[in-house]
Computed example of a mutant assay.
Amino acid sequence: MNNRQQNADQIDAFSRYLAERKPMLKQQYEQRLAHDLSRQQWQGCFQRNVLAVLTAFYDEAFYQLHATPFETRQYPVNNGMSELTRQLLTAFQGFIDEFLLFVVDKHRTSCALSNFPDEHKPDKDYINDVKREIAELWRTFALKLNTHFLDRI
């Protein structure tokens, strides 16, 4: 098997890994939310728990990719980004949107949050603030991954 095919197989395996992680991330969010509510820490729980779950997930995904023996020298670098980085980042397409839809729905259907309108029904501004922080997490992850691959060229 040639290096390009081996890399393609590893990218496919990573895509499957992402698909398998989705339900686990939702479960982690539910556990964190339940923990907050049991301690009456509802203020900011949407933001705090989304960012905590995604921070841990991006770290885990990076280490998963870091441990994968990709052949990096065969990929071109365009505008400072390895083509391999671009291909792997594509595997995340729609990932965050799906997760946020789940979280918002979880909050909107939570009886325990119904007395806290900012958390029960997060408004557009609150959600956008969280999305900006998620974008920073994503940026950090993508740069770290790209640097890893560029260092191996």
Rank of each mutant, 00 (worst) to 15 (best):
H66D: 15
L88N: 08
V104T: 08
T55F: 06
S82K: 01
Y29P: 02
E60I: 03
I96W: 02
R108D: 15
R21H: 05
E98H: 11
T85D: 07
F57V: 03
G80N: 07
T90I: 12
Y58D: 07
A61Q: 02
E60F: 05
Q64H: 07
L33W: 01
V104N: 05
W42E: 11
L33S: 04
Q64R: 09
Q31A: 15
D12C: 09
H107M: 11
T72I: 08
Y17H: 12
F70D: 02
Q64W: 04
R86D: 12
L33V: 01
Q93D: 15
D12E: 15
F14Q: 05
L65H: 00
T55G: 09
A61P: 02
F92T: 07
R73G: 14
A91H: 04
E83Y: 00
V50D: 01
R86V: 12
Q64V: 05
F99H: 06
R73L: 13
L51N: 05
Y75M: 09
R16I: 13
D36T: 07
M24C: 11
E71R: 00
A67I: 02
A19F: 08
R16D: 10
L65E: 07
R21E: 14
F62L: 15
Q28M: 14
N78V: 07
I96D: 06
H35A: 13
L18M: 08
